[in-house]
Design a protein around this nucleic acid. Structure first.
Length: 442
RNA sequence: GGCCCCAUCGUCUAGCGGCCUAGGACGCUGCCCUCUCAAGGCAGAGAUCACGGGUUCGAAUCCCGUUGGGGCCA
């Protein structure tokens, strides 16, 4: 339950009625509490007693075993399994007799035998269910705890709920609830039944499909605004199929009536894409701030380092911003600036083993040593000049330098990377590469 | 077993009787851009609108049935 509160807050969703945390029952907003079912037992009891007094419900003394037997018998005889109404026909004297025997009673609703229940669903339109299908369902269990169908009626009325928006697995329960509202003399709220979210295999989304709590998405490097945006679009769309929405825009444009009636398959790919969209559009400064926890947990920088090298971090982040799809990608891409080079064997093989790689690097060292200032522009110019001097293509210089300085074939723009590293560190790294892979050189 | 809901590219969807030889997005393919990887731009493949009957001059859109999927009673 706490995960729900945390998840809602993380997504930027708030509520004006209900508890604010699972641990502190006194912290709440709204004044229709208490908000925990076990603290509302009296209310359910009172509503049930009133229905009994008005002849709209009755105490049922049947045990679970007896009801099960009834169900099995019905099934065997190919009839609908349902409560046969034994206790409904009990006289007052018979009731007292059973109570005297020490049998505890549950409370059953006296469902109307004929007619139908109709209501308008905001998403599905006019709904009609035959009462014949509805059995005398239980309102209160023998323990005094209400069943879902009764609790939600009593609670929603007490809390002045106007709209009930929930999964369509509750659609078949709705007629029971409407019947209960009417029996109690209350006006039912407006209902809207949302389609369910399915996993890639077409079954209900569950643990088998990976992350199930919002918290896991946070840890995986998703942005709350992207998750909110993606979720809103699962089962809902505007007439122009717009796909990126800010929260305010979502609030303004959302329309329950436009929600889809058919279930939607959760597509992790599209969520990742969307997360990338948000990451790319964000100011680099903000990205750097949001990436801090991930940079820290990846072990690149501790708190002190984060504080001392904030500016550097921001520049590094800006360099790789367009490639980042998850916040967890940030440390993976900028680690080259904050820790020693880890040479990628493939990069070494592909680039450094080229015949004149060592010579190019030695040349680069000489060039860089004399270079002042050491900027993206100056290094680029210098490297191009070097290539021309050696009579090779730019790539024959750029690539070895890149691998020497970062250990990889992929990464930020080479010259911006050099500038951020600085002249000294760049030279050291090239030097070290030479020593590591070309021992007899240098 | 009964009842209920749903059905457009692989996925999310637009569509609510003629604008549809079905539009957008993700993903996929190719090209361009380019110091790498991306991003971006352009192009392309991908849906006989689950199937079968109707209604209509005309149906993805309305009606009926079938099939498939999901749900509730549990």
């Amino acid at each position: 339950m706490d995960a729900i509160f945390k998840g809602m807050r993380w997504l930027g969703l708030d509520w004006d009625e209900g508890p604010l945390s699972a641990s502190d029952p006194n912290a709440h907003s709204g004044d229709h509490g208490p908000y925990f079912q076990m603290q509302r037992l009296d209310g359910y009891r009172a509503a049930a007693d009133r229905l009994i007094a008005e002849g709209k419900a009755y105490p049922c003394y049947c045990t679970a075993e007896e009801v099960d037997a009834m169900r099995e018998k019905a099934l065997k005889e190919k009839r609908n399994p349902r409560y046969d109404g034994t206790c409904r026909r009990l006289t007052e004297a018979q009731r007292r007799e059973r109570a005297a025997q020490g049998r505890t009673a549950s409370v059953r609703f006296s469902a109307p035998p004929e007619g139908s229940v109709e209501f308008d669903d905001l998403i599905r339109g006019p709904m009609k269910f035959d009462n014949e299908q509805i059995e005398d369902f239980i309102l209160l269990k023998t323990s005094g705890v209400p069943t879902y169908n009764f609790a939600c009626v009593v609670d929603d009325h007490a809390m002045e709920i106007t709209h009930v928006i929930r999964g369509d697995d509750h659609l078949s329960n709705t007629p029971r609830q409407v019947l209960a509202y009417r029996a109690l003399g209350w006006t039912p709220p407006v209902f809207a039944h949302l389609s369910m979210i399915l996993g890639a295999d077409g079954s209900r989304l569950s643990k088998r499909h990976g992350a199930t709590s919002v918290e896991e998405y946070r840890q995986a490097g998703y942005l709350p605004e992207a998750v909110l945006n993606y979720l809103a679009l699962l089962g809902w769309a505007t007439s122009d199929s717009q796909d990126i929405f800010g929260k305010e825009e979502l609030v303004a444009k959302f329309d329950v009536g436009r929600c889809s009636k058919s279930p939607a398959v959760f597509d992790p790919n599209k969520l990742i894409w969307m997360n990338g969209e948000y990451l790319r559009k964000m100011p680099a400064k903000e990205l750097a701030v949001r990436a801090r926890p991930f940079v820290a947990s990846a072990g690149l920088l501790d708190d002190a380092g984060l504080a001392a090298r904030a500016a550097e971090l921001e520049v590094a982040v800006a360099m790789e911003q367009e490639k980042v799809k998850l916040l967890t990608d940030v440390p993976k891409r900028i680690d080259i600036f904050f820790k020693d080079v880890a040479y990628d064997p493939e990069a070494v093989e592909k680039v450094l083993k080229k015949p004149d790689a060592a010579a190019v690097l030695e040349d680069a060292i000489k060039t860089f040593q004399a270079l002042e200032p050491f900027t993206a522009a100056s290094t680029e110019e210098a490297c191009k000049a070097l290539a021309a001097r050696r009579g090779v293509k730019n790539g024959a210089v750029f690539h070895p330098v890149r691998v020497a300085v970062s250990g990889r074939t992929q990464g930020p723009s080479l010259f911006h990377m050099l500038e951020l590293l600085g002249k000294q560190k760049s030279l050291e790294r090239i030097q070290k590469t030479l020593q590591t892979f070309f021992k007899n050189a240098g």
